[in-house]
Design a protein around this nucleic acid. Sequence first.
DNA 1: GATGAATGAGCTTTCATTCAT
DNA 2: TATGAATGAAAGCTCATTCAT
Lengths: 194, 194, 194, 194
Amino acid sequence: MASKVNDIICTVSTLFHTKGYENTKLSDILAETGIGKGQFYHYFKSKRDLGQAVIDHVISEMEECLFINILDQPEPPKMKIKKMLEKILTLQLEHEGKRGCPIGNLAIELSEHDPIFREKLACFFEQWEEKVQQILVEMQQDGELPPELNTAKKARSMIATIEGGLLLMKNKQDVEVFKDIIEMIQYDYHLNNK
Amino acid sequence: MASKVNDIICTVSTLFHTKGYENTKLSDILAETGIGKGQFYHYFKSKRDLGQAVIDHVISEMEECLFINILDQPEPPKMKIKKMLEKILTLQLEHEGKRGCPIGNLAIELSEHDPIFREKLACFFEQWEEKVQQILVEMQQDGELPPELNTAKKARSMIATIEGGLLLMKNKQDVEVFKDIIEMIQYDYHLNNK
Amino acid sequence: MASKVNDIICTVSTLFHTKGYENTKLSDILAETGIGKGQFYHYFKSKRDLGQAVIDHVISEMEECLFINILDQPEPPKMKIKKMLEKILTLQLEHEGKRGCPIGNLAIELSEHDPIFREKLACFFEQWEEKVQQILVEMQQDGELPPELNTAKKARSMIATIEGGLLLMKNKQDVEVFKDIIEMIQYDYHLNNK
Amino acid sequence: MASKVNDIICTVSTLFHTKGYENTKLSDILAETGIGKGQFYHYFKSKRDLGQAVIDHVISEMEECLFINILDQPEPPKMKIKKMLEKILTLQLEHEGKRGCPIGNLAIELSEHDPIFREKLACFFEQWEEKVQQILVEMQQDGELPPELNTAKKARSMIATIEGGLLLMKNKQDVEVFKDIIEMIQYDYHLNNK
DNA sequence: GATGAATGAGCTTTCATTCAT
DNA sequence: TATGAATGAAAGCTCATTCAT
């Protein structure tokens, strides 16, 4: 059933998040999902095939969570950024900041060696940059950002800060690190005196 | 000899940079270094043992490159940041930005599962943060940064931006991405009208 | 239905011809016939069961083709041999001589390890030898073959030449090889100056 | 050591002879040779790699046995053919004719699907044909064969008869079948009244 | 110090067959 | 009848490590 496939994808997305793609062995997948080898290969033609499905899943979860529910909503730009940052923090708090970014992790592991995986992940980051840029443009039009600012690059920079913050947080295994990062972004964009 | 050990470490640090730790197989190491199995296990008691040596090596290279040669030098603070960014870019240009940060990559791969590796990498980031913070304090004293700014968090944020920028760059396999990030940091700290 | 069973058998006989018995996987069979697993095991209790049915089918096709339509016909002996050789050539031309003898191939693959399969194939060859022998006896009576000739052994030898010719032809992947063989048999039995 | 490699090749050539290439599983090889998986892959990079080595080995054994020791010797042509047939019979008697031709079997199994294996085997048959043809030419010059006879095709036909005879023999699992074939060839070439 | 043969657990994948619906 | 999910043994192969020389 589709639900079984979905179960597997969900379970494995957690495995990928904690252990990475290569380091998640088929045996881990079978143990965690409780299915047999044969059944696995009934649903997926290879581990790589599953990998693509999981990445699609992780990305679309993130898209819903950040894009649809927040960035695409009709709200004041600063509020959207604030909510986005809070949402990311909330997601991290579920695992005490030990896992880092499910997408960023895969980007590091796979970008140089698997063009298809790389492309999917790159596509996510591109969309994210665009959506943030739109918000920055709004802010710029409201006079809240200097008119000479390159909003595309600034958006890219904000996302870099978030991803780098998640990297440092994962390295410290401490979510407080990411809280500092959020605070600095909020300071940078004056998100508190709204 | 010590020089043989060093040769191995240098060669493997490149392998770790491109393929990651787990994905660098002993056979890759032997092929790349041209030594035999027996010799390898004569010099290192395990792959993990080599891993530690390589991480130490990579970190101390980075320390020399960024800390000793730049951040610890008696120069104006803005100049030091500028040079640091340029140095990182130069290093990336050697591989067209395809590999990303040798330390950040390992931080993502290993932080959650190997406490010793994690600690070594965390220690590097801590030092980096401290050194950048000192510079920001100087700038703050010179009135180039607002007095209420939390320099520790701001330093952490700058490093996050750099690491995240390298992550996005690796994902796009395009060094231009990182150039944007540098430009935004320079804009943020007014590094050009110095 | 019987016709469904027959469809499967026909399709699989082609698979066996090109890939052999062991190398024809159930998945090949399902893909080629378009049926599902359940349906397969409804019609056949195992792959081996199907194997027997296919061998029976291939043999009876050959019997019709060579025995009933040619060797059992009331025609001059030399004509029958000539037609038999031409028929075999025609069959091979359908696949450019790439597949070889459907029965000889299976004989090589299965004779040593499966007594039932072996027996079925051996039975075919025995019949063939007998029918050819009868023809040679006729020719002997007509004075076209020396009276001391052992017709049973000569018949066996002719079939060996044919099967070996098909083997060499398959190995060269070139039907011309078999044409040479036919020519020599025709020369041997003076089939042209009839 | 080279001798270990050779041991494996010899052992496996027997396995290939009885079970065929595909049907000889790695586990059979390991059980029969008494080595471990790791060791196997230390000596051969794949089963296919071993396959090539085994085929080379089988062919060169046959070349020594039939070509160097018999067909290339300075002897009367009829004697050479006689000895060749006897040698082949002797080889078969070692296994009571149950295995068939080590080369013919592989030719049937592999010719259609593996071009490299096919080529190696085809090359053997070509040489064989040439050597037999030379003998037939000699006989023709001695007036023992009709001058209009196409010796190339006749040589090919003799080898086809031998190979087909071995096929029928294997199918019957009875070496007597091949004795009949030999007898007929001897009759055909008047090898007894020498 | 140096070589590479040997080990064996573990990897991803395949396959004929059975079972539940 | 018919479907395809489920099973699990076995396939070919990889890998870090140890051992004998």
